[in-house]
Amino acid sequence: MQTARLATKLAASGKATGQYLDVMLTEAENTAGAAEQTFAAVQPPTRTADRLRGQLLVVLGECDDVLSQLRIEVRRDNLAALDKVGSGLDPLNTQLTEFVTAHQA
């Protein structure tokens, strides 16, 4: 997700080509999608795990939505919109970091 955010900032400053950004953002979307699928496929062992799973899947789903939107914009050659759409990743990144910190071991 940080890679995608950095890529959108590069787009805003005109430092990267559309082709490069397309590859980077598509990879980020695929990685996020894979992570979401992995957690969705895990059978939660307890009610507490149910709740954690639900919280995490909501955040990952929102990440996936933003990354999909970024992919759509870059393929429409609308590079100017990437930074604005990509800013939606900032709060999600904070939420994920807090989630990991709160539930680490």
Binding site: Q2, T3, L6, A7, G14, M24, E27
Partner: peptide
């Protein structure tokens, strides 16, 4: 906290520093 798992990420710091010419 980015962990490299693609070739695009290998090139990313060069793009940050030098833009399209660097890319």
């Amino acid at each position: 906290g980015v962990q490299v798992d693609s070739l695009g990420q290998v090139a990313l710091p060069v793009v940050v520093a030098l833009g399209k010419i660097g890319l």
